[in-house]
Amino acid sequence: MSDQRVAVVSGGSRGIGKAIAVALAARGRAVVVGFQGAASAAAQVVEEITASGGRAVPVQADVADEGAVAAMFDAAEESFGGVDVVVNSAGRMSLSPIADLDLDELDALHRTNIRGAFVMAREAARRVRAGGAIVNLSTSVVGLQFPAYGAYAASKGAVEAMTLVLARELRGRNITVNAVAPGPTATELFLDGKDEATIRRLAEQPPLERLGTPEDIAEVVCFLASPAGHWINGQVVRANGGII
Rank of each mutant, 00 (worst) to 15 (best):
T213A: 10
F146D: 13
V46L: 07
H230A: 14
L189N: 03
A197N: 09
I114F: 06
I49D: 00
G28A: 07
D62S: 12
A179Q: 04
Q145V: 09
A7Q: 12
G28C: 06
Q4W: 02
E77I: 12
K194S: 06
G15Q: 04
G183T: 02
Q36P: 00
M162F: 09
R201S: 14
P227L: 05
T185L: 05
N136V: 04
A38I: 00
T176M: 04
Q145R: 14
A68T: 05
L101P: 08
R200N: 11
A125H: 11
A148E: 14
E105N: 12
E169C: 01
V8W: 03
V8A: 12
R200W: 00
R29I: 00
N240D: 15
F146E: 13
T112A: 15
D3G: 11
T198A: 14
V85D: 11
N178C: 04
S138W: 03
D102R: 10
R201N: 13
E78R: 15
A61F: 02
R129F: 02
G12Q: 11
G37Y: 02
E215F: 01
A26S: 13
R122N: 14
F223C: 07
V119C: 14
R14Y: 02
P227M: 08
S140E: 14
I243P: 05
V59N: 01
Q205P: 00
A56I: 04
E219C: 01
G229M: 05
S52H: 10
N233E: 06
L224P: 07
V57Q: 09
D102G: 11
A161S: 13
A239C: 08
I16L: 14
A51H: 05
A90Y: 10
E204R: 13
V128G: 12
P227E: 13
A133D: 12
A56F: 06
A21Q: 06
I16Y: 07
S52V: 00
R201P: 00
E105H: 12
A197W: 00
I244Y: 05
M72R: 11
D62N: 14
T139K: 09
V6I: 15
F35H: 15
G241T: 06
S10E: 04
D62Q: 12
A153K: 07
Q60F: 01
A124Y: 03
A117D: 04
D195R: 04
N174K: 10
P97V: 11
A7T: 09
Q235K: 13
E47L: 03
L24I: 05
T112M: 12
V221T: 09
A56L: 04
W231T: 09
P214M: 07
T185V: 09
A75K: 14
G82C: 11
V221M: 09
G37N: 14
D104M: 10
L166N: 05
A161K: 02
T185Y: 01
A153Y: 01
